[in-house]
């Protein structure tokens, strides 16, 4: 028996007119190896359906987390939204326009930071803003860069190179670089996955603070239930792959600004947490069982 879902929706999110981002029947197929040469060498493989019929409507200024078992296709979905990966079926609309490629309307934060090692903190931000807004005057650009360095708490580290920074500080740069171009949507793929628990907690608080300040639409992939509950307005839970779908979507009604002590007092906190735990447990166990049977 499952506990009754709290405020859960069906996997097919109904199309919405007010949505900023609409993911409609999106699927991703990684083509298998075919062709004569592969046939001769016996290296043919079948097409791999990573995700199938994903439907999700994201309203402006919401913080959405995606959680699901490892390898289910979360990164694949996020990369399709970012325009870095092609869409095999369905469509993704941003403000009603289909996404065809990457663009500065979406800022991306990478799990392994992806900072340019040869650029200082400041230069990493400058590279971003110069690329996106080449017409801006030097003065305006410097002001925006300075603002964002302050926003993520990196004052004093402007002239340092990434290898001189700790992991937490590097991801602060990663977040600042994504925000400095003033995107409509912030995409984060396990942004704190490579950090230790304490640093992770600090950065979660920072993201919460920054989100209160900017209120941008955020789509974040995470493996942490507490992280999702602390930050999100909605939590999207995906099933295991192949052909991963959205299982259910939880609404997180905690008032903002939030902090980890007060949300735990909220009457729904433990119910939501239990719901997510049982979902993740069920899916992960099925993945493991499938692996043993192979």
């Amino acid at each position: 028996m499952r506990t009754a879902p709290v405020n859960s929706y069906l996997s097919a999110d109904a199309p919405s007119d007010t949505a900023q981002l609409s993911i409609r029947n999106v699927s991703k197929v990684f083509p298998g190896k075919r062709g004569l040469i592969n046939k001769i060498s016996g290296k043919t493989s079948r097409d791999f359906v990573a995700t199938q019929d994903i439907n999700l409507e994201i309203e402006p200024n919401t913080f959405v987390s995606i959680i699901g078992p490892s390898g289910c296709g979360k990164s694949t979905l996020l990369n399709m939204i970012a325009g870095l990966s092609s869409i095999s079926g369905g469509e993704i609309l941003l403000n009603g326009q289909p996404i065809t490629g990457p663009g500065p309307d979406r800022g991306m934060v990478f799990q392994n930071y992806a900072l340019m090692p040869w650029m200082t903190v400041e230069e990493n931000l400058r590279f971003a803003i110069e690329t996106v807004q080449p017409k801006l005057s030097v003065k305006q650009r410097d002001r925006i860069i300075k603002e964002h360095i302050q926003l993520v708490g990196l004052v004093g580290a402007e002239k340092k190179h990434p290898h001189e920074l700790s992991g937490g500080m590097r991801q602060r740069v990663g977040i600042a670089r994504a925000l400095v171009i003033d995107p409509q949507i912030l995409l984060m793929d396990e942004p704190f996955g490579a950090l230790d628990a304490l640093t992770r907690g600090f950065l979660q608080d920072e993201v919460e603070r920054i989100w209160e300040q900017k209120r941008k639409t955020v789509i974040m992939i995470t493996h942490s239930i507490e992280e999702a509950l602390l930050l999100s307005d909605r939590i999207v839970m995906m099933t295991r792959g192949p052909a991963a779908r959205i299982d259910e979507i939880l609404e997180v009604p905690f008032p903002r600004p939030r902090n980890r002590e007060t949300i735990e007092q909220h009457p729904l906190y433990h119910e939501l947490k239990a719901e997510m735990e049982s979902h993740l447990y069920r899916e992960t166990r099925a993945v493991e069982e499938a692996r043993i049977r192979k």
């Binding site: 970012a82 325009g83 990457p102 663009g103 800022g107 991306m108 992806a114 340019m116 690329t131 996106v132």
Partner: peptide
Amino acid sequence: NQDYLDVANTLGSSRLRTIWKVIIPA
């Protein structure tokens, strides 16, 4: 590193700019 190229691509960097600012330094 594909990540550097992804960064340049998500920013909408032109091919020439990517070559000068990303590929050669990398």
